[in-house]
Each structure stands twice: as structure tokens, then as C-alpha cells.
Nucleic acid binder design. Structure first.
Ligand SMILES: [Mn+2]
Ligand SMILES: [Mn+2]
Ligand SMILES: [Zn+2]
Ligand SMILES: [Zn+2]
Lengths: 137, 137
DNA sequence: AATGAAATTGAAATTCATTTTCATTATTAT
DNA sequence: ATAATAATGAAAATGAATTTCAATTTCATT
């Protein structure tokens, strides 16, 4: 539960609660997508400054509740980290991001790593192309 | 051969030859690694401005001779495109970049894409961790 | 070789996302 | 209520990449 993790983190770091921050975070978890700062800014009715959004997302990342994604765009996206590991399809037309997780790929990665004596810490697989809708349209 | 491709491109676009550009490009292909603008600037003895290096790498990318890579760093890297498709191991300690290509991974990607009715255009697999040397050190 | 149109260059200016600063406001422990 | 400290937003700063522009170079045509 993100509420507890957040509460613990704030307490630990002697940070204070604030309405703005809560609004951002609640919304972020409700929407539960890959969002960038501007999208949050717009969807929150421009009631919270970008600075605060940036700061809040950094904070969530630090306490492990969000993951920074850098797809092939100018700006970052963030996604809630409550989901298990997965990789992404990214539609080049509509920008939709589809998540998937495949055991075989993960296993194969581990095998190759072994072959190269490479110790894996993390990985990132992004597949760019066209989603079902956009192939038709 | 990159020389011909480049020559054809310059001719086609009515661009002129220049010593600076040639120096950059020759060096780029000689080194044959994943370089960023600053590394090129330094290794070329600061004899060519960063602007020109940026422009030259853009040009190479446009004519298909270089590939822009955006690993998890602040700045871009470029690599010669004469190699066939491959993915990367990236060492978190020494920064070494190891290339690999695995049929099984590529096949599996295609299968998953089919399952999601996703039409693949390109993909990017980056595996972060520690290279053989850095595990020991 | 000389000319001139067009491309190239480097330095400085600009852009754009993100971070930082700082003065003001809000929160919290006492 | 007070004091200490965190949170906030606006503006400034940062940094990579791009663009601008005046000066230089290239090259086709004389
Ligand atoms: Mn995701
Ligand atoms: Mn490579
Ligand atoms: Zn789409
Ligand atoms: Zn290493």
C-alpha cells in the first residue's frame, strides 16, 4: 500500500504533510499510467506548480513508489511502481504504452548475461511500432 | 562502405566537402565505439567546435551511417551504423558498452508482438549491470 | 587564376526540460 | 501562541542540443 510506504518515508525524513502533495500523489495513483509533468499539470487543473510536481515525483521515486521512464521523447514519464516488472510497447502514432511481461525473454536475457559474464542489475526493453488501432486507422 | 554512402548523400543534397567534417567522420569510424560529443571534442584535440561535431553527427544519422543512442545518461552517444542490429550491456561502474545479438530474444519479441497485434518498427534492449572486470575489482 | 553563389564554421544566442534559489506561506512540535 | 522547519511558486539557473549570424571556405563557371 503506497499510503503506508509514503507515510513511513515522510516520517523517517522528518518531512511534513501537505495538501498539494497529497493531491498530486492521489491523482498519480488513481490515473495509474505513464504520465509526464505537463500532463499532470494540466489534469490537475494547473492548481499546483510544475516545480511542486517535479519535486513530488522525485520524492515518490526516492521512496520507491514511482519509476522514472525515459522513452524516446524529450521529456520523462513516471509510472506507479506497484506493478511488477514489465516492458513496453510504444505506439509511434498515438503514443499508447502497452505493458507486457514475458518469462522467455527474461530467461534468455539471463542466459546471455551468463555467457558474457555480465551481472545484470536491471534492464529496459522498449518496442516501438504501431498499436492495433493505429494499424487500421 | 561509408565513404561512398557519404559521398552520394553529399552529392544528392548539394553539400560541400570540408576538412573539418572529414576529420570528424574519419575519426568516428576509426574509433568505432559509442561516443558522445564531448569525447569526440576532446579526442580531436578541441580543433573542431562542438557545433560542428553536433552537426556532423546529425548528418551521419540522416544518411544512415550513424545511430543515435540514448542510454541512461544525460547526453547522447553515437555509433557507426555499419554493424548489424544488436543490443547492449552497459556497465554501471566503468561505462563499458558490450554489444550482443540474440536470435531467440528477437524471435520472442516478434511472437509477443503478434499476440498483442502490435506492429514492430524497432526496439531497444539495454541491460545494465557489471562487466566481468568490474565484478572482480 | 578570378569570381560569386552557396555551404561551412565557431561563437554566441536560443530553446526546452529540469533543477535550484529564495522569499513567502503552511505545518508541526513544544 | 511561538518557534522551527518544511512546502510552495515564481523566477533564475543549468545543461544538452539547436539555431543564428558574420566570417571563411568550397567549387562550378568564367
Ligand atoms: Mn509501465
Ligand atoms: Mn552498439
Ligand atoms: Zn497507436
Ligand atoms: Zn565495467
Amino acid at each position: 500500500m503506497w499510503e503506508e510506504i509514503l507515510a513511513r518515508y515522510l516520517n523517517e525524513k522528518r518531512l511534513k504533510k501537505s495538501a498539494k502533495r497529497e493531491r498530486i500523489i492521489k491523482f498519480f495513483f488513481k490515473v495509474d499510467k505513464h504520465l509526464n509533468v505537463d500532463e499532470l499539470y494540466e489534469k490537475l487543473g494547473k492548481k499546483v506548480s510544475r516545480s511542486t510536481i517535479y519535486r513530488t515525483l522525485k520524492l515518490l521515486t526516492k521512496c520507491g513508489l514511482a519509476i522514472e521512464q525515459k522513452f524516446e521523447e524529450k521529456n520523462r514519464r513516471y509510472e506507479p511502481a506497484h506493478l511488477s516488472h514489465h516492458d513496453h510497447f510504444i505506439c509511434l502514432k498515438c503514443g499508447e504504452i502497452i505493458e507486457f511481461n514475458d518469462k522467455k525473454i527474461e530467461n534468455t536475457q539471463n542466459k546471455i548475461a551468463q555467457k558474457y559474464n555480465f551481472k545484470i542489475v536491471s534492464h529496459k526493453l522498449e518496442i516501438y511500432g504501431y498499436c492495433e488501432k493505429c494499424q487500421k486507422g
